[in-house]
Simulated scan of single mutants.
Amino acid sequence: MSESLATDTAKPLNGRLAPPRTARVVGLGHRLPDRVVPNGPIAERIGVDADWIVRRTGIRERRYAAPDERTSELATAAARRALQDARLKPADIDLVLVATMTPDELTPNTAPLVAEALGIGAGAYDVGSACTGWLAALSIGASQIETGRADAVLVIGAEILSRVIDPGDKRTAMIFGDGAGAVVLSADGEGSIGPIVLASDGGMGDAIIASHEDRIIHMDGHTTFNKAVKVLVESTQQACERAGVTLDDIDLFVYHQANGRILRSVGEKLELGDERVADYVAETGNTSAASLPLTLSLLREDGRLRPGQRLVLAAVGAGFTWGAGVVEWGLK
């Protein structure tokens, strides 16, 4: 492993001034709805067999929220676990960020509802960047810690996508699932959040769209696949270059769990072994903004995420939006 990214004094890093202090992940948690939905019923509805869905997406099952379950409830449950993991009280939190494209209502935002449920009176707002939303929120939260504007930040990704899909659409009906994941950021602890690069291309906004009129996700799968693979590869390389590390220095590549074919294609183009690329899409489906923190939590449950490892976190979503960052994991 190369020299740590962490720094507590401002020093130049690849020509850029390092932050005055380092943001770290000190708590992690997730929540998945109880209902497991296998491929069979979806396959029958869209006129294919279950194996066709696996071949096309790598997905075997996904979780769907109960009819009375709300995005804010999933987010609150994940955040509560992350707080417990960090051994912090609600009063210790200075900011709550929720990345979601499926809020309970058009307004209010999900974040203040979560803050209220947790007993937090600090600032709270949503971050809307589709599947890239949680990575964007992580960048915001880390910046708050680095500049001293906050000492502890909750960064949550939560979605109930099962309510914004057309169950008869062969392009999207089998892809999406529901869930939530959360981290607590602090300047205390071990590890570090390194540079995060973010980008967008609004000229491709029509490739994935859900209008106010029908509130259903419509996706051009071919265009999305090609763009996703391209920008995930490029942003991975850019984030590593910004952090002053090579691909060989990275222990785990944690990509947005969009579908299995995208994960495999990115791994092949970067010449990564399968064991270095996190792949949980078979059991969760695409959970959009919840995908990255949910995958981190599942990795830790499986004993694959350990202190001292260096990770790349990367995502791509509607907009188009995308980005990647390098993180040194310090949480047991």
Rank of each mutant, 00 (worst) to 15 (best):
R81K: 13
P90W: 12
C131Q: 10
A124Q: 06
V96P: 02
A122E: 10
T102S: 14
I120G: 00
V127D: 06
D92G: 06
I145P: 01
D92A: 15
D126I: 01
T76W: 04
A137D: 11
L97Q: 09
A142D: 03
W134G: 05
I145S: 06
A91N: 02
P103F: 11
G119E: 04
A91M: 02
A130N: 11
L138K: 07
P103L: 10
K89S: 14
G133R: 04
P108F: 04
R81I: 01
D92T: 02
M101R: 01
V114A: 02
V114E: 09
E146W: 04
T102W: 06
L138S: 02
A136W: 00
A136Y: 09
W134T: 01
A142F: 03
I140A: 06
P103R: 13
A86M: 11
I93S: 03
A79E: 05
I140E: 04
T102A: 08
P112W: 03
G128Q: 14
A136R: 03
G123Y: 05
D104L: 12
I140R: 01
I120F: 05
M101S: 14
E105Y: 15
L106R: 14
V98H: 10
L74V: 08
S129M: 15
S139D: 14
D104Y: 12
T76L: 08
D104V: 05
E105I: 00
A91D: 13
A82V: 06
W134P: 00
I93K: 05
A122Y: 02
R80K: 12
G128Y: 04
G121D: 14
A137P: 11
A142L: 08
G121P: 01
G121V: 12
A142N: 03
A77L: 13
I140G: 00
I93E: 02
L135P: 01
L118M: 08
Q144E: 07
A86Q: 04
P103H: 12
A137F: 00
E105C: 04
T107H: 11
D92S: 15
E146G: 11
A99D: 11
A117L: 02
Y125F: 15
G141W: 03
Y125T: 04
D85P: 01
Y125A: 11
R81Q: 09
